[in-house]
Design a protein around this nucleic acid. Sequence first.
DNA 1: CCTGCCGATGTAAAGGTTTTCATCATTTGT
DNA 2: ACAAATGATGAAAACCTTTACATCGGCAGG
Lengths: 341, 341
Amino acid sequence: MQHQKLATIEDVAALAGVSIATVSRAINEPTKVADATRRRVTEAIARTGYTTNAMARSLRMRRSNMILILAPDVGDPNFSNILVGLETEASKRGYGVLIGNTQNDPSRETDYLRFISSNQADGLILFTGHLPYGYGQDGSETRLPPIVAVNEPVSAANVPFVGVDNFEGARIATEHLLSQGHRRVAFIGHAPGREINRLREEGYRTALAGAGLPLDPRLIIDGDGTIESGRAAAELMFVRDALPTAFFCVNDATALGVIIALNARRYDLPRQFSVMGFDDISFASFVSPSLTTMKQPRHRIGEAAMELLLEMLAGEPPRERQVLLRAELIVRNSVARASGL
Amino acid sequence: MQHQKLATIEDVAALAGVSIATVSRAINEPTKVADATRRRVTEAIARTGYTTNAMARSLRMRRSNMILILAPDVGDPNFSNILVGLETEASKRGYGVLIGNTQNDPSRETDYLRFISSNQADGLILFTGHLPYGYGQDGSETRLPPIVAVNEPVSAANVPFVGVDNFEGARIATEHLLSQGHRRVAFIGHAPGREINRLREEGYRTALAGAGLPLDPRLIIDGDGTIESGRAAAELMFVRDALPTAFFCVNDATALGVIIALNARRYDLPRQFSVMGFDDISFASFVSPSLTTMKQPRHRIGEAAMELLLEMLAGEPPRERQVLLRAELIVRNSVARASGL
DNA sequence: CCTGCCGATGTAAAGGTTTTCATCATTTGT
DNA sequence: ACAAATGATGAAAACCTTTACATCGGCAGG
């Protein structure tokens, strides 16, 4: 427990017979110090087991080399894979990654801002789709650190976004269904207010329009992106008696719900109904029938987002307002040719 | 970008007409300062928008109020839920959570130690099942910060562990199968070296012994805890032609593999074979048949682990070497009464 | 031989806290 | 009414770096 007093830069300096300034330079700007001295210093560092105290450095440099990641739900499967990418890239560049689980609770969001305002983090990655509660009001806007949004764009403010091309992905997905001969394709959505939902629905509409198909509003149902919501939506379709031959779901969880509902009604999938998801979450391949879906390049999203943020931190203005990566069509067994009905 | 010079404690002091010492006390030990002054200080804090600079504080206090979490794979579904618990508890006590994804790479493990040695983190949570590579050698042992192991005990060292009671859970699981009339129960294991595997297999053996059943070594197969490994193990059983009526799998992923293999062979589950998992990962309920399994109280594990670590940080010796939480039997549809064969 | 420059190093300030110790005013005990 | 104790506050040191500026010796150019 009782940290046996760590070696400081002074100890190293004393041992090497130089001043602490020289030690600091030997570490941070090796070219600026003579070869011989540099060797003595490295030797002394090794002997003392010195590590530079990050707190003192951060205090002096006014930067912590930490990135704060704010996510509504750290347990979300979409999160963890992007996180790996974020973390990998950050670590590669000598940055650490701090996580904050907000649970969409405004007070928790505000709470995490202390990391920013107390200099404990230099930049911010937002999974939440909105600026932390408490920012952007009053004049404090200027205090915002560099921010990159991921997973879900921040609609209000001028925040660069890195993520999948939702519109394009949804269009490809819908076109895949159309290419299988489906003419009545339902869209089971997320909360209508959310940007992700808007874009994916837009892609769906565009694909339909592109094929010259009319839009049946009874085939569009909102939800909340959960398995249960998918189940409920499918049931609603049966009640309304306006059935599609294929379901395009805003995400895999919803698609799972639809599949569960259809299985429960003893339909034979994919012969009688096709179901397509979006995201390719890890268990998409283990449902029965395994889910045809659009795969998000989550690891790369994380890397790209962190890359962008670190560039911004280095002072470069964000090169682009958003980086959109292509979703990939993953064909499994939940989509089949439309049976002639 | 250009941080408009944040307010410091001096600004507050000046505005309140007191010394910085008093401001510091008003913040940290409010009782030690007169009511009137305290009010003036809080007023001044509000007016200046002051936040205490965490770096300066950490430097002075020699503690960062950060916890480093080292995990081999942040994407692991088991991880994220425990993480939520860890994070919640930490945040509640004013601690931040730093994550490190080691991918079981020794050099990355060593790399993350800089957070410890540079005072950027006060304590360590280990998911890895072993001390970070580079510790415990030479005399540096003493530099170890308070550590708590989670998910997987650290076998070598004297590190407190918080997790599920694997032995007891496995015993309960196996007894459940026995109670359904099964007499030939297979155990599909993880890598034999791993502690988790040892304990769960021990629980299995104990249950069998308790029921006076003989142990058929052909019914015990090692694996590596993946879906594929479960599939392979089930296939192997058919090749060996020593079939059980029920499979107890070391974890849900393995169980999923077994189910996939049996489904592929067109068996009718659970009528012809029962399958039981362990962990209750999020998609256990969405396989068909849905998986009967033992649920780990992951959120509580996280909370308990963090609680223990923070106590240790506060100077209290760890109350117990390990905290074992009970796994809960979740009955779904993959286990049925043994058909008389 | 002198001036000016350059490269290597040292001195000291600054970064923003917490905390020990001293100071001072006030209250308590006798 | 005086000594002692108590309570509130302030001054200054300490935490460990980085870096602007000063210093110093040597070397090239005149």
